[in-house]
Design a protein around this nucleic acid. Structure first.
Length: 512
DNA sequence: TCCTACAACTC
DNA sequence: TTCGCAT
DNA sequence: ATGCGAAGAGTTGTAGGA
C-alpha cells in the first residue's frame, strides 16, 4: 500500500506502527511506542495516542468475523459498515495502510479490511478523530507506553486516564507534568468515569473466601448507570459511558430531591412490576433502549457513591461509602447485608432470587473503588442451570478459529416426535482448543449438508450446556432462547433421546 | 408507504 | 455478557 | 492478574429498496 509523504507526525506514526506490527512482544511494542511519545510535540500527543492504539496491534489481529457475521446474520460487535467506511477515510488521511481496495460497496470488502485491523481498533481511531475518544478498550499497551515515556508509575497513569476518561489527554499531562500533575487530577462531577467491574464465582462461599468480610448485595438484572449531579444539573451515563440522561426522567427526578449539592452515584436502572418484582431483562431494556419516548417506568437503585459535596470517595473503604450512600439515597439503595458468614450470605442470596433478582455481588468491605478494573474486590454470584442439548449444526469460525467448526446450533428434543429437535440458541463459549479440534472432525463426519458457512449434522451429539436462564424469543420456533449459553462438555454417554425437551425449556421461562 | 437489513446499544 | 488463551 | 478475541440473547432506531 502506498503511503503519501505526510508531515513528521504521520511519518512517525507509519514507521512506528509498522515496527510495532512487526513484533509480537508486548514489551517491545511498549518500548517503541514510548520512544515515539517522548519525541512528539505537545498537541501531537493525544492524536498519536489514539492512532497508535489502532496501529499497535496491527499484524497480530484476527480476521474479524464480525464484518461477515454482521452482514449475514445481523450480529454486532463490528462497529458496523458505516464505521468501517468512515474509518477508511480517516486512516487514509493519516496515511496508515488499511489493506486492499476501497470500502464503497456495503459488505463487499469488509473481510479484507478487517483482516488488516480489528474493528475495535478502527472504532477507536474513528472516535479519536471525531472527538469522542475516551480511555477504553485496547488502551492497555498504550497506557504502558505512556507510563514508560513519561517515566511515571503505571498506576498513576491508569488512575488519571480513568478519571479523565481520555488517555490522550492523560499522556499529554504525564509527559509534561509527570506524576505530580497526574496526582492533581481528580474526579470531575459531570464527567463519567469507568465503573468498577466484578469477577465471578460459582458460590457465595467461594466468593467470600476471595473477599473476606463483605457487603453482600442483591444483583439487579437491569442496566448499570452512573448518576452525576452538580447543583441542579443531573447527568446519567451507561456502563460504557454513553449519556442517557433524557431517557430516565424518573431517575432524574429522584436524584434531584437528594439533599446534597453534588454527588456521583453508581447503581442499576430497572423496571419493577406492581408487585415489586423486577421486569424481565428484555422488558427493562425495551424502555432503556427507547430514545423517543422516555422510560417513565425505570427507576434507579444505587449501590455505591464515589463523590459527595466536593469530596472524592474513591479511596474510602466500602463500609464508609455504603454509610454515606444510605444517608443520601434512602430507599433507593440496593439491599445489602454485611457479613463474613457463608450461611448468612447464602440466605441473603436466596432472598434476592426469591424476589426475582439475579443473585448477589459480594464486595470486600474494606475495598476502595477501583474504577475501570475487574478486580477481586467485587465478586458476582449467579445460579447456573444445566441442560443437555443436541448439536444441530456448527458454523465455521473466524480469526483464531478459522478452519474450525466453532459456533454450535443447539436443539431441544420434541417430546412427541423423536425425529424433531427445536433450535433454542447458539454457543461458541467454553470450548478449549482441543475440543474445538475434536468437534471439527467429529461434526464433519456427521454432516448431512453444508452451505459454506454452516455445516448441518445428524442430530445425535449431546452437549451439556450451562446457562444463566432462558428468555422468551420471537426468533426461535419454540418461543424460548438461552441466555449466556456455554458448553460444559460433550456427553458421549448420552444419546439424543436423553436430551432435555422443548417443553421443559418453555417451563423455565419466567412467568411459567 | 411498508418492510427488511443493518447499526448501536444493553446484558 | 462467558469463557479460554497468551502474556 | 490482565487483556484480548471468539461470538450469544435481546432491544430500539434508521436507511434504503420494493
Amino acid at each position: 500500500m502506498d503511503e503519501s509523504p505526510g508531515n513528521g507526525l504521520v511519518a512517525d506514526l507509519v514507521s512506528v506502527s509498522e515496527a510495532v506490527g512487526a513484533t509480537s512482544k508486548r514489551t517491545e511494542k511498549v518500548r517503541l511506542l514510548a520512544a515515539l511519545l517522548t519525541r512528539l510535540a505537545g498537541d501531537e500527543i493525544p492524536i498519536a495516542v489514539g492512532a497508535l492504539i489502532g496501529a499497535a496491534r496491527q499484524g497480530r489481529i484476527g480476521v474479524g468475523w464480525a464484518s461477515l457475521t454482521n452482514v449475514r446474520a445481523g450480529g454486532d460487535h463490528a462497529g458496523g459498515v458505516a464505521t468501517l467506511v468512515e474509518l477508511d477515510r480517516v486512516l487514509t488521511e493519516l496515511s496508515i495502510t488499511t489493506g486492499s481496495g476501497s470500502l464503497g460497496r456495503r459488505g463487499s470488502l469488509l473481510d479484507d479490511f478487517a483482516a488488516t485491523l480489528s474493528t475495535a481498533e478502527l472504532d477507536f481511531v474513528r472516535r479519536l478523530v471525531i472527538g469522542e475518544i475516551r480511555h477504553g478498550a485496547l488502551a492497555g499497551v498504550m497506557t504502558d507506553a505512556v507510563a514508560k515515556a513519561a517515566g511515571v508509575p503505571l498506576p498513576d497513569v491508569r488512575r488519571a486516564a480513568m478519571l479523565l476518561g481520555d488517555l490522550g489527554v492523560t499522556a499529554h499531562i504525564a509527559l509534561h507534568g509527570g506524576s505530580a500533575a497526574l496526582s492533581r487530577i481528580g474526579l470531575i462531577v459531570g464527567r463519567a468515569i469507568e465503573p468498577m467491574l466484578a469477577s465471578s464465582a460459582p458460590t457465595v462461599a467461594e466468593a467470600l473466601v476471595v473477599t473476606g468480610r463483605a457487603s453482600v448485595e442483591w444483583k439487579l438484572d437491569g442496566a448499570r448507570i452512573q448518576v452525576h449531579r452538580a447543583g441542579g444539573d443531573v447527568r446519567i451515563f451507561t456502563r460504557n459511558l454513553n449519556e442517557i440522561t433524557t431517557r430516565l426522567p424518573r431517575v432524574v427526578d429522584a436524584v434531584s430531591r437528594f439533599e446534597a449539592s453534588s454527588f456521583v452515584l453508581d447503581g442499576e436502572a430497572i423496571g419493577l412490576a406492581d408487585d415489586g418484582r423486577p421486569l424481565a431483562f428484555q422488558d427493562t431494556m425495551r424502555d432503556f433502549g427507547a430514545d423517543l419516548q422516555p422510560a417513565v417506568e425505570l427507576q434507579a437503585f444505587f449501590f455505591d457513591i464515589i463523590h459527595l459535596d466536593g469530596r472524592d470517595l474513591l479511596d474510602a473503604p466500602l463500609s464508609e461509602r455504603r454509610r454515606v450512600l444510605g444517608d443520601l439515597v434512602g430507599g433507593c439503595v440496593v439491599p445489602a447485608v454485611e457479613t463474613d458468614d457463608p450461611t448468612e450470605a447464602d440466605r441473603f442470596a436466596a432472598t434476592s432470587l426469591a424476589t426475582g433478582h439475579e443473585g448477589v455481588v459480594v464486595k470486600a468491605i474494606d475495598s476502595t473503588y477501583e474504577a475501570g478494573r475487574r478486580g477481586s474486590s467485587w465478586v458476582k454470584v449467579k445460579p447456573v442451570h444445566t441442560l443437555d442439548l443436541v448439536v444441530l449444526a456448527a458454523e465455521w469460525g473466524h480469526g483464531r478459529r478459522r478452519g474450525l467448526l466453532s459456533n454450535l446450533h443447539l436443539g431441544a428434543r420434541d417430546a412427541d416426535d423423536p425425529t424433531r429437535f427445536v433450535m433454542v440458541g447458539k454457543t461458541f463459549k467454553g470450548l478449549t482448543d482441543a475440543v474445538l479440534a475434536w468437534q471439527t472432525a467429529r461434526l464433519q463426519a456427521l454432516a448431512v449438508r453444508s452451505d459454506g458457512y454452516t455445516v448441518y449434522v445428524e442430530p445425535t451429539m449431546v452437549v451439556e450446556i450451562a446457562i444463566d436462564g432462558v428468555q422468551r424469543s420471537t426468533r426461535y420456533p419454540g418461543g424460548v432462547a438461552l441466555r449466556f449459553a456455554r458448553v460444559r462438555g460433550y456427553r458421549s454417554d448420552k444419546s439424543a433421546a436423553d436430551a432435555d425437551t422443548i417443553t421443559h425449556l418453555q417451563s423455565l421461562r419466567p412467568g411459567n
